[in-house]
Design a binder for these strands. Structure first.
Length: 114
RNA sequence: CGAGGUGAACAGGCGAUCGCGUGGCUUCGGAAGAGCCAUGAGGAAAGUCCGGGCACCGCAGAGCAAGGGUGCCGGCUAACGGCCGGCGGAGGCGACUCCAGGGAGAGUGCAACAGAAAUAAACCGCCCGGAUCCCCAGCGGGAGCCAGGUAAGGAUGGAAAGGCGAGGCAAGAGCUCACCCGCGGGACUGGUAACUUUUCCGCGCUGUAAACCCCACCCGGUGCAAGAUGCAGGAGGUACGUCGGCUGCUCGUCGCAAUCCUCCGGGAUCGCUGGAGCCAUCCGGUAACGGAUGGCCUGGAUAGAUGAUCGCCCAGAACAGAACCCGGCUUAUGGUCACGCUCGCAUU
RNA sequence: GUGGGUAUAGCGUAGUUGGUUAACGCGUCAGAUUGUGGCUCUGAAGAUCGUGGGUUCGAGUCCCACUACUCACC
């Protein structure tokens, strides 16, 4: 997942928290605010685990989101990991991401990745 | 075989597909993009407990105070509160391990409860003497009182004025003597030294300095969000003093203004990784370590790069992620190996 | 990155220069009162003083290391 698609500044995160719509499941929360460019940010707090665990969760989430980059409506996404995400497998995270994208109605019509 | 002790290296490997950071090359007028190649977390990267480098501030620089730290000896080191080797003490049957280990003979404080008494002592007891009273024919005996002597004995306590024996005494006492114990000093043996061997003299002194303190030595402050250079912007200030110049005081010194000063906050580039570096051999040293020669280049991100899936080996395996960089310490943690190390059991 | 603070009964807090039994309130339990409950009164239980070492005769207190939580600044 390339850097140009990444959400970086704290202000951008604050914007999404204020304006975005949220959808949640057991391990994840997804916020989405429509916009012109496509950027994705990940938020993993210290409650999830130590630095190694947090990095691993972020990597997995990035890998989960990568296949949908071309198939998703433009805007700012923030994915928040809950503490239970540390124990989740890659497959279950991937299922959760797809479920949340559908719930947000963010997938482009007729171009769904299966 | 079991239970230990010490030390050492390693930190899953290989292959396939997709994906990421950095550097180089090619494509291209250039950028973007694409392709290829190389490379890409640790022994603790952690905790932030110490020591430095580096940067800025103070800055010709200096002194004092305050505060903090260290504390057997010698060596190593850039330095250290670290390491190595000794000494002393403590623990363990032993291999071996652990120790903030200067000064209580400079002063102050504290030592609850118990106990007669807690750093110094006469409550009981023991003993001499005095007057009074009682018993007795008398010798004499007894009772409490007064004034002294005495630390041998007395339920305590962590600690009770060295221990034991003999002499001595009215009763006693290192009061005296022999032996032993401890402390201080001198000489001597060995050692660079801490210390130690032997001996002589003096003394018998409570413990606590991780209580205040004394002595010796060390420490200026702030930290890469340091700081430097560009870009764009906002707010405020007003003249020799009662100003300002990152800690207190004293000296010293500098500045005196709008093209300046102070403050605020946004973004970019640099700082940014080749270094007290790593590996091998030889030499010196008990060792820590040092020297010589040869070889190697080995992360540099900036919401933060190592992942996902599968196969084989295999017991699917712990603690855990660089953020300026090094040297230590401490803590967390997986299995492996070595020992001409120890103890126990069994067999020969 | 740097520098502080806190940890004591189920909960919230005391604990003064080390000294015997760690105090208080709420809560809990038992009893009394009441026809029953509450209020009230009486009594009781409940603490590895965050963990592990050390100094000391003696540690909640002093020293060291660690753990968790929390605050401040840039």
């Amino acid at each position: 997942m390339e850097r140009q698609y990444r959400l970086k500044k704290n202000r951008a995160f604050q914007y999404v928290y204020r304006r975005g719509h949220s959808a949640a499941c057991r391990d994840l929360v997804m916020l989405f605010a429509r916009g012109r460019e496509l950027k994705v940010g990940f938020s993993v707090s210290k409650k999830v685990g130590n630095a190694v665990i947090r990095n691993k969760v972020k990597r997995r989430l990035r890998e989960c989101f990568r296949p949908y980059l071309g198939d998703v409506k433009t805007g700012l996404y923030v994915i928040v990991a809950r503490p239970s995400a540390a124990k989740a497998t890659f497959q279950s995270l991937q299922k959760d991401v797809r479920y949340l994208l559908k719930k947000q109605d963010a997938l482009k019509e007729g171009n769904r990745a299966e």
